[in-house]
Design a protein around this nucleic acid. Structure first.
Lengths: 188, 188
DNA sequence: TAATTTTTGTGATTTGAATCAAATAGAGTA
DNA sequence: TACTCTATTTGATTCAAATCACAAAAATTA
């Protein structure tokens, strides 16, 4: 698993610890446009992206708004549903054929109790979420839509090759037309 | 401590557990406009607001932007500085005379190792942060500035009595003039 | 209390992004 | 390959919020 390879660079689990982790994971395939989670569902598991891409979106009356994209090694989960045990307010959907390594949250909690190393990893993951959220908030507070566009191009140029532009536009808080105009500005 | 009173409603710590918690706390007073943390500082503690109010803000070249406000029972901390061990990108400042119950993060980690109940509380707090961050992000994605203003009025009407309007305006991502116009709309 | 400073409110104007309306390009399918 | 459907681009127009300029109110300070 690509995911394990990356984890192993971060922390150094023993074979026993790895096997314990593996024992609670399962592989799940999503076809293009298939959903991992619907609005109203209870999120009860987390998953790593082994291959493919995922988007999170809010369904409004007349349009969809992307909250996030994830590529390989990304962690798929509606944390607010998982933690509050309330129905999800977002949809989570595969944008390409996607392979996930999934684990039930309950099994994960037991694993973390039994293996401190995985508890440590869980903590790191949660902390990353908070850091990510702060960055995202600051982008909306400090930057203009135009600035957000140029920052995204700089930090994640690959996104533009794998994600439909209309999704990116709503992620940046602008219309497709406006995104298109910034892209034009960029090329000439 | 008001904070303890609230914690006790959430979980049921024993006297020994409470004493262990108390042993790592200290009281800290901030005068109006005094800072809890400056940009560039390393955040190494967390604090509860016993009395008073706090704002978080980014200092731009020509203006300040409020990222957040906290009142009594609020948890004061630059999580991204604390978790990443990097200098803070925000200022944290008292808006009124403020009394804090502070604890060093390191001592807190030890406490959490020794007393599972406090580890549990720490987890709950972290989870709340993530839920809060998701709500805030969705407000920027889904709502217009006007909608954000009316939502804030509904959810936290008291804020308007304790927080200067210019701070609230930047928190909502608008100018003071625009906020002033929405307020007028509200009154007549 | 008056004087000063800071904050908030109001009107006029500008501007950046949304909306509306096609046109073009591209992907998927028969 | 042609046909359909969807995504993207482009232009014209509208609109909401920013900016600018100043007045009024409130808070601080002398």
């Amino acid at each position: 698993m690509r995911v394990l390879f990356n984890i192993e660079r971060l922390i150094k689990p023993s074979t026993a610890e790895i096997n314990a982790l593996k024992s609670i994971t399962s592989v799940r395939f999503l076809k293009k446009n298939e959903h991992f989670l619907f609005e109203g569902d209870l999120c009860q598991s987390i998953a790593f992206i082994e291959k493919g891409s995922i988007r999170y979106y809010y369904q409004m009356e007349d349009r969809q708004i992307c909250k996030d994209f994830l590529l390989e090694n990304g962690l798929v989960c509606s944390f607010s549903s998982l933690f509050s045990n309330e129905p999800s307010t977002i949809y989570i959907q595969a944008m390409e054929e996607t392979e996930l390594i999934e684990m039930p949250y309950e099994a994960m909690q037991t694993l973390c109790e039994d293996y401190p190393i995985w508890n440590k990893l869980a903590q790191i993951i949660i902390q990353e979420q908070i850091i990510r959220a702060e960055k995202r908030e600051s982008a909306f507070l400090k930057d203009s839509p135009e600035k957000r566009f140029f920052s995204l191009i700089e930090e994640h140029p690959t996104i533009f090759k794998r994600v439909p532009l209309q999704y990116i536009a709503s992620y940046l808080g602008m219309t497709r037309e406006t995104l298109s105009r910034y892209r034009r500005k960029l090329h000439q």
